[in-house]
Amino acid sequence: MAYEPQYYPGATSVAENRRKHMSGKVEKIRDISDDDLTLILGHRAPGSDYPSTHPPLAEMGEPECSVREMVEPTPGAKAGDRVRYVQFVDSMYNAPSTPYFRSYAAAINFRGVDPGTLSGRQVVEARERDMEELAKFQMETEMTCPALASLRGATVHGHSLRLPEDGVMFDMLDRCRKEGDVIIMHKDQVGRPIDKKVNLGKPMSAEEAAKRTTIYRVDNVAFRDDAEVIEWVHRVFDKRTIYGFKPEN
């Protein structure tokens, strides 16, 4: 029987969502066009060619190397794209994803990515078209709620603050706004105004966010409610503590 990764222990909805994010088997809930994505990422003009940092690999004449022969380059590496980044911020108030699970999702399901995990933000560096593929995946699926998560290249402050009255995570650069019942982005991820308003779709309701979140919270699903997770966390901590301990010395 083929091995199937289990990814994460636990029987609660949060554990199930964590497994979904890690395995990449997440539900697609909105559409964002390629041009809109390019516009809000702000690395190049929509519709323009990808600037390159070196000629395509096929023209470069690579040295003979068994590893290079074995590993198929990603489309971005093949074309010689620049390395560019996308950075997400997820609110602590039941945002669907968290920096750790965005990094797991990126590292497990995408090649040629360099995820960076911080307490309040998560950055992925990759060749431009590979990075765009990942950004599109994370923004179009249930990994992102446009109100509780946001694309923030710089000035990320807000993930741990109370939500404003309209439920859209505080952003001191005002990149996202709620207009009618949808969230629009009228600045790119670093705060430069863009030519048009990009519709990021409807925000999740409080109930839906609580259902889709990967965050354990005492006011939703408490960490201590998940006996299997607790057991495994204890086991990991136990092993980490004793693995170098040799009493006979």
């Binding site: 603050l161 001191m172 650069l173």
Partner: peptide, 20 residues
């Protein structure tokens, strides 16, 4: 939380924010 008049960090430093 304070609302800056201009973008404090990054490539857009110095641009007006116009926060509502």
């Amino acid at each position: 939380p304070r609302l800056p008049q201009t973008v404090p960090y990054g490539p857009a430093t110095g641009l007006p924010v116009n926060h509502p």
